[in-house]
Write a protein that binds this DNA or RNA. Structure first.
Length: 273
DNA sequence: TCCCAGGCTCTCT
DNA sequence: AGAGAGCATGGG
């Protein structure tokens, strides 16, 4: 991997196992948009970013300093993890197929609160509508950042009412968003403490929030807290498990279940393509 | 019109 | 402790 400064941009060359389109559009993050020039744009932690992948081995981070690249984007795209090594360790045929076809998916390290809130919204919902609700959440309650908006903090949402949230058209999930915001804002569910907890304790903390069950907790831990041993089972993954692994998950994914899950999920959803 | 969508809560056995 | 209805909203 090579980091090159070019005018105001950063160019990342020869980064192994990183496909930004797969990573930004595989159902793990809901706020990235691609324009007709294949330029992606999004907001992470109050930073607005545009980026584009060229020739599969060159990624341009527009208007980005080396400092922001090293402090924010390296972590967000999980670049310190050796995905080749992990994917190579998978020796189960179906999983190998998924990894070959969608090579370059990385688990994005999202903001913890944003992940909790986003996956609360995701329950019993479809991806286009999830994106719409989250977009309205940011436009109505976030702050203007570049060409987009920040994700509203728990503190901001904690003092809203159900009536305030009606603009989201989130349905029955609105009351869950409020409960989550109040518990996170008050520290009853303490994100800083969760970071330091073991997996089971961390999950138990998240389950204190109304509207957070097993699946949403696992998603929060995987995409928000970077716990790659999490294994969220939605309807698609349940389908995969019952079809392919009725007697248990393959031994080779132990410790990196979340990464395997992401490849299997994306592969199974796009089987007809 | 009916069914379903990256589930969870509540209630009833 | 396990099963099932109900939940808001919108797209196919």
């Amino acid at each position: 991997m090579q980091i090159i400064k070019s005018n105001k941009n950063i160019i990342l060359k020869n980064q192994e196992c990183l496909n930004i389109s797969f990573s930004l559009d595989c159902g793990q993050a809901f706020r990235w948009r691609k324009n007709d020039e294949n330029i992606w744009s999004g907001v992470v932690k109050n930073k607005f970013l545009k980026l584009k992948q060229i020739n599969n081995n060159e990624i341009i981070f527009y208007d980005t300093t080396e400092e922001d690249f090293n402090l924010i984007w390296k972590k967000y795209f999980d670049l310190d993890r050796d995905y080749n090594l992990i994917l190579k360790s998978y020796n189960e045929p179906n999983l190998m197929l998924a990894c070959e076809k969608y090579n370059g998916i990385r688990i994005l390290k999202q903001d913890e609160w944003e992940a909790i809130c986003s996956f609360i919204i995701s329950q019993n919902n479809n991806i286009p509508r999830i994106k719409g609700i989250i977009e309205r959440l940011c436009e109505n309650f976030g702050e203007k950042i570049g060409e987009s908006y920040s994700f509203p903090t728990a503190d901001i949402l904690a003092v809203k009412t159900l009536d305030d949230l009606s603009v989201l058209r989130a349905g029955f999930r609105a009351k869950y968003i409020l409960d989550a915001a109040k518990k996170v804002s008050s520290g009853e569910v303490d994100i800083e403490k969760i970071k330091a907890m073991n997996f089971e304790d961390a999950k138990a903390e998240l389950l204190k929030i109304k509207g957070v069950g097993e699946k949403v907790a696992q998603c929060s831990l995987l995409y928000g807290f970077g716990r790659i041993e999490a294994f969220p089972q939605d309807v698609w993954v349940k389908r995969i498990v019952s079809e392919l692994y009725p007697d248990g998950l393959p031994e080779c994914i132990k410790g990196t279940e979340g990464i395997a899950q992401q490849y299997l999920f994306h592969w199974r959803r796009n089987l007809d393509d």
